[in-house]
Design a binder for these strands. Structure first.
Lengths: 112, 112
DNA sequence: CGGTCCGTTTGATGATTGTCCAACTATCAA
DNA sequence: TTGATAGTTGGACAATCATCAAACGGACCG
């Protein structure tokens, strides 16, 4: 269970975090990660993006410090870096996740 | 006291908000706004950016729904849209502002 | 009116980005 | 070993972005 390279917690910056969260596809990925660990392929289902594009998004999230990725055979396991993020920026991740669900609910009810 | 055009609260999206917050200069502006309303000129002091660049950042913040701008004579008054943002995404703005101050403190103590 | 001040708008430019495709690596299975 | 599967890497391309410079507009002051 090797690990992909991740930035140390001290190197995580708010600006990079915000940039990683500024793309709709990455926000959708983060929303799915909030429900538990996932591997790359199921994470991308329904996003209609090329697998290399998904891989790119995974790297952006990882290098921003939002996710941690472990290699398991030929699949990767991606999970949110809740511990580090909660320590560095308390309440931020929770607020973002809550914003994601409430925004999804708002959009669903606005679908006339 | 005219008002510049702002997006209605319902049109504010998390992705646009995150994008507006993904630039260090804009984060610094937001941090300064947290202490109270400000006009454009003092907001840019020390940022060493051209005034047109600052104007660009003000517009990005405004169009993302982060700030509200009123025209007062030949100056503009910019303030955070706390009410709308707190209603739409509870805790998000507070978490960002807290992250900004704690990150600034961490950087200051890391300045060897 | 003429000048000054605050900020916006309009290019222009170089850098970054999101996306796809094709080729590649590494793992697992037959 | 051969083939299939999971994901990464590099290149290419159009779009977006941050920045500056120069011109503009409106507001205030003589």
């Amino acid at each position: 269970m090797r690990e992909l390279p991740h930035p140390p917690a001290g190197d995580i910056t708010l600006a990079q975090l915000m940039h990683a969260l500024s793309d709709p596809a990455r926000l959708e990925i983060v929303a799915r990660l909030a429900d538990g660990d996932e591997t790359c392929l199921p994470l991308g289902t329904g996003l209609e993006l090329h697998k290399s594009t998904l891989s790119h998004h995974y790297r952006v999230l990882r290098e921003a410090g939002l996710t941690r990725t472990t290699v398991d055979g030929r699949t990767r396991l991606i999970r949110l870096r809740r511990d580090d993020l909660d320590k560095l920026f308390p309440g931020l991740l929770d607020a973002v996740l809550h914003a994601l669900t409430s925004q999804a609910a708002r959009r669903a009810s606005a679908a006339s």
